[in-house]
Nucleic acid binder design. Structure first.
Lengths: 171, 171
DNA sequence: CACTATGCCCGAATATAATTCGGCATCAGA
DNA sequence: TCTGATGCCGAATTATATTCGGGCATAGTG
């Protein structure tokens, strides 16, 4: 059905690194005509390989200098409500990301706040208040690095897929 | 120096939600001329308010269906090397995000892998191997929601900044 | 007050990019 | 070989990005 070939992978790779890349430039980088490239990008959006495009702001410049990650555990009997809880949490304004986890914690909530005071109030009134919650643990984020911004120039998804195996062979 | 006014905030807001928004459409949404909008976007990039633009792919479609978050603790005497370690980790192919934390864990590493086998090898050979590492704890990610994709239509950064305080006043 | 410098905006003009479309090549099945 | 389907290309068209000159407001100055 939706087979991703090498060119599609390169398209996704380039857009992950630089989402606002013009189609013409993108086409050039992956070695196809702009018109063809456009068709492929639309197909990738259509079949869900490309999900969305987001700007990464400097939160401090927006008046939100405090970032934190809150680990949340639900009560054992409330596990069934995990989706309901997450669905509510993700719409809260301060929430940047929500990770559903296996393991001891049920999820991690990545938030940005105006101050440690707002963070405390946010955790207290929005996250902990819920009856399903057993405990929360708040960790300040000092810095956040984005992988795709730091990868080697000539890399690609195959580099990622082969990363560990390759290294093992060499050792 | 770099004062962000209301229009700038709306620009950043719109680009966070939809990074590939054409400049013309962006200008229309924030109520200024395209030429003016372009100048503002460039200024926001210049002064660092807008840091980068990234596509969000479906990792499974790229052959990386296993996501995990690894909590890493360094040995107390190795805390000085925290930046060195992070600098190395962020360039590894499987790493999507690195969060520097305060608290018990020194950081969280968000990774994508081809299989649980690759994940195990990756954690073992790339993350745990380092002499500075005291312990790691790996948590599978079942799902990842992005906040800005789920916020109410009419929201803005001021909604975020006022979120908790507003709620407190009402209660 | 008049004058000027500054900053910010707009809109017309131009350069560049996005998009559509017809046609060609390739390939698989009949 | 014929034929339909698929995917690519490049020219033509449409739309967007970008540059630039000038207008308007504000603030500082004589």
């Amino acid at each position: 059905m939706s087979t991703i070939d090498e060119i599609d992978e390169r398209i996704v790779w380039e857009l992950c690194r630089e989402a606002r890349l013009p189609n013409k430039e993108l086409a050039e980088r992956v070695g196809i005509a702009p018109s063809t490239c456009l068709v492929r990008v639309r197909a990738l959006l259509e079949n869900g390989t490309l999900r969305s495009f987001h700007a990464q702001p400097d939160w401090a410049s927006l008046g939100l200098p405090i970032e934190a990650i809150v680990a949340v555990r639900l009560k054992a009997q409330a596990r069934a409500e995990i989706k309901t809880y997450a669905q509510r949490v993700i719409t809260l304004p301060n929430v940047l990301n929500v990770f559903f986890l296996g393991g001891a914690d049920d999820f991690l909530i990545h938030v940005a706040c105006t101050s440690t005071g707002q963070l405390r109030d946010f955790v207290a009134t929005e996250l902990s208040m819920d009856n399903s919650v057993a405990s929360t643990q708040t960790n300040i984020v000092f810095d956040h690095l984005i992988g795709v911004e730091h990868m080697a120039e000539g890399s690609s998804w195959s580099t990622v897929r082969d990363a560990v195996a390759t290294r093992k062979i060499h050792s």
